[in-house]
């Protein structure tokens, strides 16, 4: 019995500790996107001015990537399609951080990703001298693999509201629909009352269904009130031991 209880506790904590990671998102939030120059298909623009036109979801990728860029953008495309169906008003901007990329490369990439709503998806490049300025401003780091010539980097989704302010940065491959819905709400300046600051948190009292805007009671609530149930059993046991309760009746 004791062993079973201990095992259950251990499994519970091990399960809770899966997928730990650090999150530095808040260091880069609530600042304007850098006013760097971007080259899109038909026009050159200031990134800040572009974002101020409409809420924007930005992702960084490069066209010759043999790693996560294409699978990530394809997944993002499918997930975003769901929000686009519900007429969420935002634009998607995929910009390259590779000095070697040209506008032509990015258009080829656009063809490979093939988003449904092409008028709201933009593929472009940043002015070479300003790549570092932009990546530093959103906490995006990448390194050159000298053997393969590939750029090692994390996947990233940056939510920018209509004022050009960065309101969410999510750096993970398996970005959930719930997290994406938080990004949609945030970029439209809708109040998101709850989200885990760090998705790697062990357990929490509540989770928040961003799409429905509802709280869901989570395991943490059980931690708060399980002791009361355990003590009720303990006290009942203390008082029901016959040799104790019966002695002086």
């Amino acid at each position: 019995m004791k062993a079973a209880t201990l095992s259950a506790v251990l499994i519970f904590f091990l399960a809770a500790s899966v997928s730990a990671q650090t999150d530095e998102e808040k260091k880069f939030l609530y600042r304007e996107v850098p006013d760097v120059s971007i080259q899109l298909l038909n026009r050159r623009a200031s990134l800040l001015a572009f974002c101020k036109e409409e809420p924007t979801i930005i992702s960084l990728a490069y066209s010759r990537c043999a790693g996560i860029c294409y699978p990530f953008l394809l997944t993002l495309r499918d997930n975003l399609a769901e929000a686009e169906k519900e007429e969420k008003k935002f634009r998607v901007l995929i910009i390259s951080f590779d000095e070697k990329d040209t506008q032509e490369n990015m258009q080829t990439m656009a063809g490979a990703i093939h988003p449904q709503n092409t008028s709201r998806w933009f593929f472009g490049t940043i002015e070479r001298s300003q790549i570092k300025t932009f990546t530093q401003a959103v906490g995006f780091t990448f390194t050159l693999d000298s053997l393969s010539g590939q750029l090692n980097h994390p996947p990233i989704v940056i939510g920018v509201n209509g004022d050009g302010t960065i309101v969410r940065i999510v750096k993970k491959f398996d970005i959930s629909n719930n997290e994406l819905w938080q990004v949609y709400h945030e970029i439209e300046d809708e109040f998101v009352p709850f989200y885990k600051e760090n998705i790697a948190t062990s357990i929490s009292c509540f989770t928040y269904d961003s799409r429905k805007g509802k709280f869901i009671v989570s395991w943490g609530m059980l931690l708060l009130y399980t002791p009361a149930i355990l003590v009720a059993i303990l006290v009942w046991r203390i008082f029901s031991i016959k040799k104790i309760a019966g002695v002086q009746k």
Partner: peptide, 12 residues
């Protein structure tokens, strides 16, 4: 470990 706790749960 590298687990990060939930601040709201810890405050509760």
């Amino acid at each position: 470990s590298s687990v990060v706790n939930d601040a709201l749960l810890m405050k509760n």
